[in-house]
């Protein structure tokens, strides 16, 4: 029981991670895939921050007198990762917008169908 409760954060992290992963591999609308990717990323952020937490600790901003500080290193890593994640998401959105301009749709299955039709047309022309 203590094992289950002591790892509660990690169980939820795995659930969220798999949720994001499932959205990424099973949905076809590309913006939704990007949302799934950001769910995945956030679950990794939560995992790191959970690792750095010390029970009864306080935020790593030094105060006078004795105190227990949680781990600042995980905060540093995740802080930069968040800003990088928005930059990569924006890059993905830019690609989605360009794909929409080229194909008229952002649905993976429809794009597949268009590609297949194009290939068939090329073969027939030969």
């Amino acid at each position: 029981m203590e094992f289950l409760v002591g790892h509660y954060n990690y169980w939820v992290v795995v659930f969220l991670m798999m949720l994001g992963f499932y959205v990424v591999i099973s949905r076809t609308h590309m913006v939704k895939v990007l949302v799934g990717l950001s769910v995945f990323q956030t679950s990794v952020f939560i995992f790191y921050i959970s690792l750095g937490k010390i029970r009864g600790g306080t935020a790593p901003i030094l105060i006078d007198g004795p105190a227990v500080y949680s781990n600042p290193l995980t905060s540093v890593l995740i802080l930069t990762a968040i800003v990088v994640s928005i930059a990569t998401t924006a890059l993905g959105l830019a690609l989605v917008v360009r794909i929409n301009e080229a194909y008229g749709t952002v649905d993976e299955e429809e794009i597949d169908a268009i590609e297949r039709a194009d290939e068939a047309a090329v073969l027939e022309a030969r």
Partner: peptide, 30 residues
């Protein structure tokens, strides 16, 4: 979990900029 810096960034980025960008892209792609 004692990471106010991260919380700050996440709320500014995830809630603010990321939502605006996604909505902007949705307006273009349906």
């Amino acid at each position: 979990m004692d990471a106010p810096d991260v919380a700050f960034t996440e709320s500014a980025v995830g809630l603010g900029v990321s939502t605006v960008l996604m909505l902007g892209a949705l307006a273009l792609v349906g």
